[in-house]
Design a protein around this nucleic acid. Structure first.
Lengths: 213, 213
DNA sequence: CTGATTGGATAACGACGTTACACCACGAAA
DNA sequence: TTTCGTGGTGTAACGTCGTTATCCAATCAG
């Protein structure tokens, strides 16, 4: 069926070498994930959509967990890019922009966020290297925190600890929002309050919280 | 095989009526969940462990999602009981005790927490009634917050909003801890800082935060 | 005792992840 | 050109999953 010089993505990409073949298969999986959710991400459907058989997926990724891990890393890459794109007039505003960027990225990539923080693909556990790579956004956050300390906005304390607390605050609000646990709750208000509270906690004593409402 | 008057949990419980039969099947599923994780929770294994065929599960729960929802509700019941058991000398200490109880309950029931906040069982989406029931722990939290407002510890503001922020803080720290995103991080320190920060955010102006470290 | 009804065991169906195996296209050697 | 590996791919299978149709046995009404 797929044999006679078809116009499959697979047939087209095959000639361009292994790397682009892998990229194209991941794009197929990614599209499936975003359009139909994690449950639709099956080996058979990815293969059918790409126009090849499942064998290709197994020679390329070893098992379904290999595809899942690649998507997992892509999710963190997107998050990283979103955080890197956040700017602000001063270090604190940049930190606030990173928080908004985190939330916006999560809401715009719900399926990726699920792969990253829920575990919707049975049998997938990120490898230690993938875990290590996933800490890149956290380091970006820690750098922004360090800038706040240098500017005298935050008390001098371990930046990675502060970043961890800010991450937990951001993730907690976003995670509940995505899970849909909202008894008619203003999720944005909750997000703003929690992230502001976490930041205020680390501010220098002579600084007022940015908005004591 | 299971026929000749066996000592199956099923054969034993059958005589005691539908309700206890349902309870026993859920206990079997719960044990499977806690011992081997969400992936091991299959209809066939539950039936085999209970000593009956899968038909019983379908007449009793409709589908696998029915079992998942029952376990989901049980998870929130355990959380609710844990929060109700938290006490303190004053309203603020009681609130802190509830936070610690939340974390302890999550760490002691990791598989339940996964069912509640991750979505490890494909095709399971909590029903609206289940969602409504899951808000009970949040109401307990809101009551404790209202006590803090009455005592002048917190500024007068919507208790359910404050409770939502505290919940997001607690959940964010616990969620990251359970997911294993720890670059050599002191998770307890992170938890304490974030929950304290969230509480301090709502305190009356004349109140100092409980521990400005 | 007979008939109807209820409810569970059995076995099947389709879909899943995975793999054994046959096959075919390619480059090297002759 | 022919021959011969050899690596990658399609096909088809295996075992497991959720789910369901079918059949049978036990129970109860008359």
């Amino acid at each position: 069926m797929t044999r006679p010089t078809a116009n499959n993505p697979y047939a087209v990409t095959r000639a361009a070498g292994k790397a682009s073949l892998r990229r194209m298969l991941l794009d197929t999986a990614s599209s499936l994930l975003e359009r139909h959710g994690p449950d639709a991400l099956t080996m058979r459907r990815v293969a059918a959509e790409a126009g090849c058989s499942t064998s290709v997926l197994y020679t390329m990724f070893g098992a379904k967990a290999g595809i899942a891990e690649a998507l997992w890393r892509e999710g963190f890459d997107r998050l990283s890019a979103a955080l890197d794109g956040a700017t602000g007039a001063d270090p604190l505003e940049r930190l606030a922009a990173m928080g908004r960027a985190y939330r916006a990225n999560a809401l715009a990539n719900k399926s990726y966020y699920a792969v990253m923080f829920q575990r919707p693909i049975p049998g997938f556990e990120p490898s230690p290297e993938a875990y290590a790579a996933s800490l890149k956004p956290l380091r970006a956050l820690a750098d922004a925190v360090a800038d706040c300390i240098s500017a005298g906005i935050f008390r001098p304390e371990d930046p990675s600890h502060i970043a961890g607390v800010l991450w937990a605050a951001t993730h907690g609000a976003v995670s509940l929002e995505l899970a849909g646990y909202e008894g008619a709750v203003d999720t944005e208000h909750r997000f703003n309050d929690l992230t502001a509270a976490a930041a205020a906690w680390f501010m220098s004593p002579d600084r007022q919280p940015p908005a004591v409402r």
